[in-house]
C-alpha cells in the first residue's frame, strides 16, 4: 500500500494515469450530469408546496455538496503536504482551489435565487448561509496565499496550514442547520434514513451529483496535468513529450 502511495507522488506517473482517465471521467460525467439535470428540470414531478421553483435543487445541491467535498479533499492533500512533503498534493490544491471557489459561488448564487421566491429574501445571516460564505472566503484565501509566496515549498506549507485551519468550517456548515435555529431547512438526505423525497425526485438528483463529481475529477486531472507540465518543464520527460507533440 505504501509503495502505491509513494508512486502516486511521481508527477510523471500521475500524468500518464490522468491522460488515460480523462476521457472516461468527462464522457460518463457529462452523460450523468446532463441526464440528471434534464430529468430533474423537465420530467421530475413538481413539489406540492414550492411548485416548480424547487427544481433549482438539481443545481444547488450538487454544487454545494461538491464545494464542501472539494475543500475536504484539499485539506487531506494539505496533510499529505505537511507530513509526506509530496509535490503532487500541492499541485492538486492549486489545480482545484479555483474550481471549488466557483462551485461555492454557484451554491450561494442558486441559493439566493431560490430563497427569493420561497423564503422571501435573497440573503439572511443565518448559520448555514454565513458559514458557506466563509467557505468562499477560505477558497479565496487559499488561492491568494498560494499566489503570494513565490517559493514553492514554503508556499505549499503555508497553504496546507490554512487548509487545515479552515477545515473546521466544514462540520459547521454540515451541522449548522441542526445545532442552531436557521432559516435554511435541515438536510433532506441523511446517511441513516430514507430521503425525505420520493425516488422520482431524488434519483435525478443523485445522477447529477455523481455526474458533477466525475466532471470535477476530469477538470482536476486536466488542470493538474497543466500544472505538472509547467513545473516539470525542465525535466527530460516533459521535453521529450513536447518534442513528440511537434512543438
Amino acid at each position: 500500500m505504501w509503495r502505491f502511495f509513494h508512486k502516486l507522488g511521481s508527477p510523471k506517473w500521475f500524468y500518464g494515469i490522468a491522460l488515460q482517465l480523462r476521457p472516461w471521467l468527462l464522457w460518463v460525467g457529462l452523460a450523468l450530469l446532463l441526464g440528471g439535470v434534464v430529468w430533474g428540470l423537465a420530467f421530475a414531478p413538481k413539489d406540492y408546496l414550492q411548485g416548480n421553483s424547487y427544481r433549482i435543487i438539481y443545481i444547488h445541491v450538487p454544487a454545494a455538496l461538491l464545494a464542501q467535498s472539494v475543500y475536504v479533499m484539499m485539506a487531506v492533500a494539505g496533510v499529505v503536504t505537511l507530513v509526506w512533503r509530496m509535490k503532487l498534493a500541492d499541485l492538486f490544491v492549486r489545480a482545484v482551489a479555483p474550481v471549488g471557489a466557483v462551485l461555492t459561488f454557484l451554491a450561494l448564487f442558486t441559493g439566493a435565487v431560490w430563497g427569493k421566491p420561497t423564503w422571501g429574501t435573497w440573503w439572511i445571516w443565518d448559520a448555514r448561509l454565513t458559514s458557506m460564505l466563509i467557505l468562499l472566503f477560505l477558497y479565496f484565501g487559499v488561492i491568494a496565499l498560494g499566489a503570494a509566496i513565490s517559493d514553492e515549498k514554503s508556499s505549499a506549507r503555508a497553504v496546507a496550514v490554512l487548509l487545515l485551519v479552515g477545515v473546521v468550517n466544514i462540520p459547521i456548515i454540515k451541522y449548522s442547520v441542526e445545532w442552531w435555529n436557521t432559516l435554511h431547512q435541515p438536510a433532506t438526505f441523511k446517511l441513516t434514513e430514507k430521503p425525505a423525497m420520493p425516488a422520482e425526485m431524488w434519483v435525478p438528483l443523485l445522477l447529477s451529483v455523481l455526474g458533477l463529481y466525475l466532471i470535477f475529477g476530469w477538470l482536476a486531472c486536466l488542470r493538474m496535468q497543466t500544472e505538472i507540465l509547467q513545473r516539470e518543464r525542465r525535466t527530460r520527460w516533459v521535453k521529450e513529450l513536447v518534442k513528440e507533440a511537434g512543438y
Binding site: 414531478p45 423564503w119 423525497m197
Partner: peptide, 13 residues
C-alpha cells in the same frame, strides 16, 4: 418582516 421557512420534505402534489 415575515419570511417563510420550508421544511426538508419534498413530494409531488
Amino acid at each position: 418582516q415575515v419570511l417563510a421557512k420550508h421544511d426538508e420534505n419534498y413530494m409531488p402534489p
